[in-house]
């Protein structure tokens, strides 16, 4: 079974976000970019499936400018077999990404597609679900465990208040949550080998997808600074306020 994994290039999670002075967007000039942590978990899961003999090939795909090849190479260094870059000038919106990925799915015919549940920049949490809709496949989102059994994949999902396990008919779409696995480190020899692994570059036109905007970003601002509230004189007063004023207990 072939496994397709998607990776996104995002601002490194250690780097503090800074809004541009003109409020048009966040400032990404000269800041460290990295593989989206949820995508890294997706790559790890795919590699584990290969190591377990379930997957035969791991194909990694990313969308964006040439720089995203760095993240594809990272995934290849971790153990993916080959890469596909769909070259675009900017990072497209989720639905466009899903449409491009749907074409890749059509071409590659993977048994399983694993995506991060969300990217830590846009925090949308959409692409996997949209891809599932466009391909007409089942979706197992927020996975904390993935088990392939016969023609079905059992996905344990992290839902509010607990865990839910669903059985999905293969091929299927899975999105990863934090606790699915702990990704490995890439070793130096594998980083060097990754440079020689195949990486195809395609354009949206090659895939016959026309990108269309569904939203317009009007402005970005830093979050409002939180202001201090009141001091209470006693525990009794605190509990009374939480019950009757804030209504949170």
């Amino acid at each position: 079974m072939k496994v397709l994994v998607t990776v996104k290039r995002v601002l490194d999670y250690n780097v503090k976000v800074r809004v541009k002075a003109d409020r048009s967007d966040v400032d990404l000039a000269n800041v460290k970019m990295a593989l989206n942590p949820f995508c890294e978990i997706a790559v790890e899961e795919a590699i584990r499936l290969k190591e377990a003999g379930v997957a035969t090939e791991v194909v990694v795909v990313s969308i964006g400018p040439k720089a995203v090849q760095e993240q594809i190479r990272t995934a290849l260094a971790l153990g993916a077999d080959r890469g596909i870059q769909i070259e675009t000038d900017t990072m497209p919106e989720s639905l466009s990404v899903a449409k491009l990925l749907a074409k890749v799915v059509e071409e590659e015919q993977p048994g399983l597609v694993i995506l991060g549940k969300q990217a830590i920049d846009s925090d949308n949490n959409q692409t996997g679900q949209m891809l599932a809709a466009l391909t007409g496949l089942a979706q197992g989102t927020f996975a904390s465990e993935v088990k392939v059994e016969g023609d079905e994949v059992l996905v344990t999902r992290e839902v509010d208040g607990g865990l839910q396990t669903v059985g999905l008919k293969l091929p299927a779409i899975v999105t990863t949550d934090l606790r699915l696995n702990e990704p490995r480190y890439a070793s130096l020899p594998n980083i060097m080998k990754a440079k020689k692994k195949p990486l195809d570059v395609k354009t949206p036109a090659d895939l016959g997808v026309e990108l269309r905007a569904h939203t317009e970003l009007l402005s970005v601002e830093p979050p409002a600074e939180r202001k201090g509230g009141i001091k209470v004189g006693s525990v009794a007063e605190l509990v009374e306020k939480l019950k009757n004023e804030a209504k949170v207990i």
């Binding site: 989720s94 949490n125 959409q126 679900q129 949209m130 599932a132 809709a133 989102t141 999902r157």
Partner: peptide, 20 residues
């Protein structure tokens, strides 16, 4: 988690974007 699981799938079926 229920809403986030469902709505993007709805949006894609409608060929529209989704605001999260």
């Amino acid at each position: 988690t229920t809403g986030k699981n469902l709505l993007p799938r709805v949006a894609a079926l409608l060929d529209v974007g989704q605001l999260s």
